[in-house]
Write a protein that binds this DNA or RNA. Sequence first.
DNA 1: TCAGACATGTAAGTCGTTACATGATTCA
DNA 2: TGAATCATGTAACGACTTACATGTCTGA
Lengths: 205, 205
Amino acid sequence: MGMAARQKTKFAILGLLSLKPMSGYDIKKLVDVGLSHFWNENYGQIYPTLDALVKEQLVTKKGDQSRGKRRRNVYAITRKGRLAVQNWQLEPTEPPIVRNELQLKLFLGGNLTKRQRIQLIEAYQVQQQAALDDYRQSEQVLRNAVEKGEYIEELDEILDLTSSNPKDRAKQCNIFYLTLRHGIRTTEARLAWCREVLENLANGP
Amino acid sequence: MGMAARQKTKFAILGLLSLKPMSGYDIKKLVDVGLSHFWNENYGQIYPTLDALVKEQLVTKKGDQSRGKRRRNVYAITRKGRLAVQNWQLEPTEPPIVRNELQLKLFLGGNLTKRQRIQLIEAYQVQQQAALDDYRQSEQVLRNAVEKGEYIEELDEILDLTSSNPKDRAKQCNIFYLTLRHGIRTTEARLAWCREVLENLANGP
DNA sequence: TCAGACATGTAAGTCGTTACATGATTCA
DNA sequence: TGAATCATGTAACGACTTACATGTCTGA
């Protein structure tokens, strides 16, 4: 049963390969270092998915044993693959199904003491604040790059820019900045909610 | 291999049963109608999980064939179950791993035209606005109930209040209101982000 | 009488995580 | 020389979705 579901991982990996040819290891690193505020992947999915993409002829696999390097399989997207990515990008995106354990715990918190409820929220607050601090730091780096056109070395590692063309580079930088802004805004909203709740709990029963 | 992971569904169901005894059908309905802004469950998980909970003696199963009713299995939490719920509630909650397909599409959107990028965001905006409208309506109902202590009939269906004690009832109402506020704030943040992005895209290249 | 809600359950598959297994290269 | 990183992969679970199968009761 269950036709094709969504295959998010498949299109995510294919999409990343549309930026430039990469190995499974590269993909994992890019996601971890650069996209962790909105995406994640793990090896258990990546390698089998790459195999599947090769079978579907959406990517090609090429062993890279150049210059006495380690064994390394580099995957490059095909024309067919590029078309598939574009199709997917323009398809309607259904909203992510939410599952927020903290909310659930709070909702069921009628049996807890006021102190315990407050602790629940405060732990969430600490978590979100830490995330926000991270985002803010990346934001600073990027803002300089975008607004002042500064060249920041570490950015290439994080951003994995596809093009050397400075115009494309600036564009890609700006898009990345926008995804960061999403993380910042929603995290700020959660923090504001924490303050609202703590105030409400302090006044209430 | 993989020890116990998180068993979110297990504790979610057990937690809901700590409010009051329910059938699998009741649980599904409560989640769909009342908690959909932060939780979801489906039958394929609910019924097997209920069986597992019985085996672990965290709940008891009781056939309810009273008054010529339909066949109906009602599950009630045990003392052991209540302890398990409390433990889980007070354990640290790890942040939900994010996976936002829209962000990914945007990030990979360097190959799209400006018009296409804008369409991507606008579709997201419409989605989020619809969600916000829903939340706002529930908020109105609840605000009246919380602030003015009004009795609103439909609330009992939605909220599934455990206690007839008016003080507990008000407390539960308030907590539910707070979870709604979380949905509202984060949705507003996403909408504000949409406006920011659309402005940025309009000015940029 | 018949549509729609009530009610329970299973089968099959997809998706995702974690742990394990293996080994090469680099660099302090 | 040995720790860190590079690099690929599999096995086993656990989690979640979808579709199907089946039947009852209520009320317009």
